[in-house]
Design a protein around this nucleic acid. Structure first.
Length: 324
DNA sequence: CAAGGGAA
DNA sequence: TTCCCTTGC
C-alpha cells in the first residue's frame, strides 16, 4: 500500500523511449499483486492450470518481461524477504481486507451478481509460497535476473539504483524514494496510460526538505510500520510540521519512532547479487508454461523465440546506468 | 496485465 | 496504422 503522499509529491509524465537501454529494478511483489488482481476472466476468476493453481502471475511475469526487453529495458525482479516485525499490524490489516473481500465475493456469487463478483474477486488475492517459488523459477528459465531481498523489496530496489546497477525502480508505490532511490516509474504498461516518473532530487528541492525530513513526513502521515500515522495529520500538515522543525513535538507520540526512521535511513539490503542476463532454457520453459500450467503452446512458442532473440542480442551489450 | 484480431 | 475489445488458463 505504501505511504499516502497524495498529490504533494511532484511527478512528471514521460515516454517509454526515455527508459531505453536502462535497467529496471522491479518491485516484484507489488507488480505480482497487480497481475493477480487484473489478469482475470469475465467472472472475475483468475487464470488457473488444470490443477486449479492460479497462473495469472506467470502470465504477467512472462509477457511483461518480454514487453520490457522488446523496449530495450532490462528487468531485474526483486522479491521481498522477511519483513520487519513492526510491519505485523499492516500485514494483519491486509489479511483482513482480503478475507473480507473473499466473503463479499462468495456472497455475490451466491446472488449471481457478476459485477460484485468481479469487484471483490480482484481484492481477494491470496499469494502462496509456491506461486512465488514458481515465479522465480520462471524467471530463471527465461534467463532474466531476480534478487531475493533480505527484507523489503522496495529497499533492495533502491539499493540497486543507488549502486547504479539499475536506473530506476518499477512500482506503483512511492516508498522506494524513502529508501533513497532517485527514480521511480509508475505504470509501465502497454496500455495508453501515461508513464509517471518520480525523481527524489526533484521531490526534495521542490518541497524544500532533505531525505530524512521526507522520511519524517512519511512517518507523520503513516507508513507500513506505523499505519495511520498521527491522527489529524495528512500530507499538508506533515510538511508544515517538518519544515517548522516541530518534529520533536510529535515524535514521542509515535511508537518506535527512531526504529522506523532507521528502517528507511539504513535499510536492510544486500550488495552481492548476480544480475546478468542468460539465454532462455527453451525446453524447460515450454515444459513449465505449456505442460505444467496449460498455457497455449501456439501462443507461447513465438514469444519464447522472441525472448531468445532479444536476450541473444542483449547479452553482448552492457550499458552504464545513469540518466541522460 | 499484455497479445491478438478485427474494426475504423 | 491505430484503436478497441476480447481472451488468456
Amino acid at each position: 500500500m505504501g505511504v499516502q503522499f497524495g498529490d504533494i509529491i511532484p511527478k512528471k509524465e514521460i515516454s517509454l523511449k526515455l527508459l531505453r537501454t536502462k535497467s529496471a529494478a522491479i518491485d516484484a511483489m507489488n507488480v505480482i499483486y497487480q497481475f493477480l488482481s487484473s489478469i482475470r476472466l469475465k467472472d472475475g476468476s483468475p487464470l488457473k492450470n488444470r490443477s486449479g493453481e492460479i497462473t495469472s502471475t506467470y502470465n504477467g511475469i512472462f509477457y511483461k518481461t518480454i514487453y520490457m526487453l522488446e523496449n530495450e529495458i532490462t528487468p531485474i525482479w526483486v522479491f521481498d524477504g522477511k519483513s520487519h516485525d513492526l510491519k505485523e499490524k499492516t500485514k494483519e490489516d491486509r489479511r483482513k481486507l482480503r478475507q473480507n473481500a473473499l466473503e463479499n465475493y462468495l456472497e455475490a456469487k451466491e446472488q449471481d451478481n457478476l459485477e460484485n463478483m468481479q469487484k471483490y474477486a480482484k481484492r481477494a488475492n491470496f499469494l502462496d509460497k509456491k506461486t512465488i517459488e514458481n515465479s522465480k523459477r520462471l524467471l530463471e528459465l527465461m534467463g532474466v535476473p531476480y534478487i531475493n531481498a533480505p527484507s523489503e523489496g522496495e529497499a533492495q530496489c533502491a539499493e540497486l539504483v543507488k549502486s547504479k546497477n539499475a536506473s530506476f525502480v518499477v512500482s506503483q508505490d512511492y516508498d522506494s524514494i524513502l529508501y533513497g532511490a532517485e527514480s521511480v516509474v509508475k505504470n509501465i504498461t502497454s496500455s495508453n496510460k501515461s508513464l509517471e516518473l518520480i525523481e527524489l532530487s526533484k521531490v526534495l528541492t521542490e518541497l524544500n526538505v532533505n531525505l530524512l525530513e521526507l522520511i519524517d513526513v512519511a512517518i507523520l502521515i503513516g507508513t507500513d510500520y506505523n499505519p495511520g500515522g498521527i491522527k489529524g495529520i495528512g500530507p499538508k500538515k506533515a510538511f508544515e510540521v517538518v519544515k517548522k522543525g516541530q518534529m520533536e513535538k510529535y515524535a514521542f507520540e509515535i511508537q518506535n519512532y527512531s526504529e522506523i526512521r532507521k528502517i528507511f535511513d539504513e535499510p536492510n539490503v544486500i550488495t552481492d547479487y548476480e544480475i546478468g542476463l542468460k539465454l532462455p532454457r527453451k525446453d524447460e520453459l515450454i515444459e513449465f508454461l505449456v505442460e505444467e500450467n496449460d498455457f497455449s503452446k501456439e501462443r507461447v512458442l513465438p514469444n519464447i523465440e522472441k525472448l531468445d532473440l532479444l536476450l541473444g542480442n542483449k547479452k553482448s551489450q552492457k550499458s552504464l546506468e545513469s540518466w541522460f
